[in-house]
Amino acid sequence: MKRFEPLLYGAVMAVLLVALIAEGRRSAALDGKLALNAKELYGLLSNPQVKLQLVDLRAYDDDNYLDAHVPGSVPMPDCSIENAPPAARDRIYPYVQTVLIAGDGQEAAVERCRGQFMNARVLAGGMTAWSDALLPEDVGDYSPPKNSAGGGCL
């Protein structure tokens, strides 16, 4: 019996490790499905350890992006790179952890965008929820972050 004891411990640990890896994968898959609320997003943006790309799918006009947007968000109207302003086109990265910000009736664009980004979550309630939570907003044209400023979102 004593001879097999190390083997038994090893086998139990191997089974538990496999289960842990499976649950970790499931957790990562669920991350993409769950929408973030505005306060959660603000918390993530306030954490310098978290690297996030914010993509705003609303129209780039006076009633939408130019009126108010989440600081640091990159405009990409209707999830089409052709609709993005020239300064933003080379600032959209498909392999970066991304949060999509949409407007009314843009569910189709959100679904399309989920396929374009490797790891995309959605801001629940879109820009309306962000404004309702009285969180900081920027107005006006998109301007790429300066390298000397560290390129942060907030």
Partner: peptide, 13 residues
């Protein structure tokens, strides 16, 4: 939570 959404739309409204 995923299978029973809270009713918050993804895109405002």
């Amino acid at each position: 939570q995923v299978s029973q959404p809270t009713g918050t739309p993804l895109a405002g409204g």
